[in-house]
Design a protein around this nucleic acid. Structure first.
Lengths: 221, 221
DNA sequence: CCGACGTAGTCTGCATACAATCCTCCCGCG
DNA sequence: CGCGGGAGGATTGTATGCAGACTACGTCGG
């Protein structure tokens, strides 16, 4: 078993992602400690890291508050994802590994196997495959900082939420782009791979912004 | 006065930047606590944050080790800087403020006033003006995550070290590029501003890599 | 002589206790 | 009735103590 603060960090991050703690809500240390069965010390260390990564905001003497995302935040996050994911994709295409390519194709196949995504479980399956695809590219890029930065951009929860807005055509287009990227990486074509990724993320941004047109994006659970 | 852990964080970060703690060296909690006049608790919280930001690496049950940068790390950092700084520069050029433009011009003037940079103090003065220029652009961009990500890329220490390698011609070219960017931002020309910034960072990368040609970049104090 | 094991020492991980700060609510005053 | 001030409670900030893990060194066996 890993350290208590690391476990707490992972648990809290997952809960922040899935909406267990709504945006803007206050997280009390003692309560979290009781829930996770540890003392306040490791909880505090986990909160410091979550603060550094933008999952929440710690105000001195006031406590931790779950982050909420405004429309401007959403746009910035997608813009940064477009930059960083394209960068990672180009790097991955410069040195593809057989294992990496196999993982990409496996993620593609897993996503396609869940179509048509008519149930929530199927949507989650596609989402999982999607996350695995992107994370595999991050790994293949060999860029440690790029990977960790993408990890702090709340990418997985955003992908999951976004998939609620995808219709069947969007899902198929998204998966087709994954196949395109996998092929471009396998054939060592960085500029193509990067360009497809940029388009892929920009398309996701457009769908996300359309889906939350006038709704309060930050309040979504 | 801020909290003890925040003070400790700032102090330790400065020492990691200026080489007080050499790359790879081990940082013992009790020793740091004694040096900063606090207990181990705030020190530990500061270390967690420095770990999250990449300044050091905390290994469970073994302690914290000051980060060392390989040539590959340096390249990745400059590549990310090129992406993110250009992005910030474009955003700043979309909504320039009078105060921001004034700050940019002031930083330019301060840098130029220290030329020719024949003494170490003059080099540091130019470096300070340089850092202020870049940070002003980050502020003007209004992109909170972009700013914080750039902050984690060890940019200030890298700029300072890099300036040791600049000759007079390089310094003048660098400052001329700053003037170019300031003008492009003032005239609301995002693509020009972003392009100049990309070139600016790429030039810095080339000089840095040439300067540390076969030397151990990570070991540099 | 070299390698493996055991043990003492040191340091980190976590829990607990105490101090300081902030928020809330109530009371008094204008 | 509205507003300012203060006491109480709640919550965070910091210090300390103890237990567990790792390191280093010495010793024993091959």
């Amino acid at each position: 078993m890993a350290t208590a603060w690391e476990q707490s960090y992972l648990t809290l991050r997952r809960r922040l992602a899935d909406g267990t703690y709504p945006a803007g809500s206050r997280l009390r240390e003692e309560e979290l400690a009781a829930q996770l069965g540890v003392s306040r010390t490791p909880i505090r260390e986990a909160l410091r890291r979550l603060d550094a990564e933008g999952w929440l905001r710690v105000v001195p003497n006031q406590g931790a508050f779950a982050a909420s995302w405004s429309r401007q935040d959403i746009e910035e996050i997608f813009d940064l994802r477009a930059l960083l994911e394209a960068h990672a994709c180009e790097q991955a295409a410069m040195r593809p590994t057989p294992a990496g390519i196999a993982a990409l194709n496996a993620a593609c196949a897993a996503g396609e196997a869940s179509l048509p995504a008519t149930t929530l479980a199927a949507v989650e399956a596609v989402s999982d495959a999607n996350v695995r695809f992107h994370q595999t590219i991050w790994e293949m890029s060999g860029q440690a900082r790029t990977r960790s930065m993408l990890g702090t951009l709340a990418v997985p929860p955003m992908i999951l939420r976004n998939f609620q807005h995808f219709d069947d055509a969007n899902l198929r287009r998204s998966l087709a782009q994954h196949r395109e990227m996998a092929a471009a990486i396998a054939s060592r074509n960085p500029s193509l791979a990067g360009a497809v990724m940029r388009a892929h993320v920009e398309a996701g941004k457009a769908i996300f912004l359309a889906g939350t047109a006038q709704g309060a994006a930050g309040a979504a659970a």
